[in-house]
């Protein structure tokens, strides 16, 4: 095989491998408070939540009817859930030295409290809190939300 063909094969392999890397989600925060039945929903599976576990981008947090759950994200954002609640962490980017920050969550059902962190301070427009009926934009804020499931 000629040198050029080697290069083409190498480039092809990198292109094939790239999506696999892209799908790996990055750490976003840590579970700090758990009581009753509380879970992380990750790639379709359900994992019982424990204090100290890492929460990743695209995880969902879910509680049973006796459950509570509290997490702190790496930008100081705090999120806590009451019973029978679910919130999905759609995206989380916190690289202030590269000027890249962003946070999106979906409040799917139940009750939750959101306390803004550094991302809302650095770039408030990059925070997106979604509910089934409206989008909430924040300017350095603590919010309580209640969502009736769809």
């Amino acid at each position: 095989m000629k040198a050029r063909q080697h290069w083409l094969v190498a480039i092809g392999l990198v292109l094939l491998a790239a999506p696999a890397f892209a799908q790996q989600s990055s750490p976003a925060g840590r579970i700090k408070v758990v009581s009753g039945s509380a879970f992380i929903v990750r790639s379709g599976g359900t994992i019982p939540a424990e204090v100290g576990q890492t929460v990743f981008e695209s995880d969902s947090l879910r509680t049973g009817d006796d459950g509570r759950l509290g997490i702190t994200l790496d930008d100081d954002t705090r999120l806590s859930l009451g019973p029978s609640s679910e919130v999905r962490l759609n995206s989380f980017r916190y690289a202030p030295a590269q000027g890249s920050v962003g946070l999106a969550m979906s409040f799917l059902r139940g009750i939750a409290v959101y306390v803004s962190g550094q991302i809302a301070k650095l770039a408030p427009d990059s925070v997106r809190l979604e509910t089934p009926s409206a989008i909430v934009g924040v300017r350095g804020t603590s919010l309580a939300l209640h969502v009736v499931p769809e």
Partner: peptide, 10 residues
């Protein structure tokens, strides 16, 4: 309405 979630705040 929100006491349970407030109590779970880190």
């Amino acid at each position: 309405r929100f006491g349970a979630a407030i109590a779970a705040q880190p």
